[in-house]
């Protein structure tokens, strides 16, 4: 894992021309269409919890998945399962139900990841493949609007996982806002075959990493043959 970064995304990062050009649609007002299908309007009141869940205890992610101890309502937060050392994406819909814009500057997941970044995904017009890269600007969500984090689009990237993120567990992360406030979000971890974009850390980092990383290796989080080369049974999960 050659990428090592500050835990939150710095408010301003030197921007390369290409990322500035491609960074077009940050705020989507569509709601979570692709994520939630027909269910987007049927929110069930699930208690917002930022606390760890006890084995066998209730999960806030059963259905409505609304977490709102902060400026945003977070719907259906989930993370793709991944192995320690790898990177993985976090998805969901951030809804601003307040009356002032909310500006997301970064995130942290200290128990689970060495670094957390806000990523966007761009299509390489030469190869047709998608590449993800750090966002250059904070994300501003206008009052009444939603911001969708989805595989193949904008997402939160957990880098340098400190432990296995295993399907059926949860991971906490902290969203950071421009005004200095924070909000804890609990994301359900799921196996997922997509979200395999190459990571292009960009010119600004000078880490000498031009290989790109494929988060797709981490598709399995159980204990069987289809899980990753590192047997998940032997490694600590993030929740022990």
């Amino acid at each position: 894992m050659p990428i090592s970064m500050p835990i939150s995304m710095p408010p301003s990062v030197p921007s390369s021309v290409s990322t500035a050009l491609l960074r077009t649609t940050t705020v989507l007002a569509l709601g979570a269409v692709a994520l939630t299908g027909c269910a987007s309007s049927a929110q069930e009141a699930a208690p917002a919890t930022g606390s760890t869940s006890v084995s066998g205890g209730p999960s806030p992610h059963d259905a409505g998945d609304t977490a709102a101890q902060g400026p945003l309502t977070v719907e259906r937060a989930w993370a793709k399962a991944g192995s320690a050392g790898a990177m993985t994406g976090v998805f969901g819909t951030l809804v601003n139900e307040g009356d002032a814009p909310v500006v997301l500057t970064g995130a942290a997941a200290e128990d689970a990841a060495g670094a957390v970044e806000l990523h966007e995904t761009v299509l390489d017009p030469d190869t047709g493949s998608t590449v993800m890269q750090r966002m250059q600007d904070p994300v501003s969500i206008a009052p009444g609007e939603s911001y969708a984090l989805e595989p193949g689009a904008d997402h939160i990237m957990l880098l340098d996982l400190r432990c296995d993120l295993r399907a059926g567990d949860e991971v906490d992360l902290v969203l950071r806002f421009e005004d200095g406030t924070e909000q804890t979000v609990t994301a359900a971890i799921r196996d997922y075959a997509g979200a395999q974009e190459e990571y292009d850390p960009g010119e600004s980092h000078g880490e000498g990493n031009d290989e790109g990383h494929d988060e797709g290796h981490a598709t399995g989080s159980g204990t069987g043959p289809s899980s990753d080369a590192t047997p998940a049974a032997d490694l600590p999960g993030c929740r022990g």
Binding site: L35, T36, G37, C38, A39, A42, S55, G56, S59, H61, D62, A63, D65, R76, W78, K80, F91, R166, A167, G168, D169, A188, R190, Y192, S221, G222, T223, A232, A233, G237
Partner: peptide, 27 residues
């Protein structure tokens, strides 16, 4: 492991609960 079974049952239950309501499960 027993813990893996717990996680499996949790994921299956959550997905099943959503599906039976006509809601798309996470992912």
């Amino acid at each position: 492991t027993r813990d893996a079974v717990r996680r499996l049952l949790r994921v299956l239950s959550e997905d099943a609960a959503a599906l039976t309501r006509g809601r798309a499960p996470i992912a």
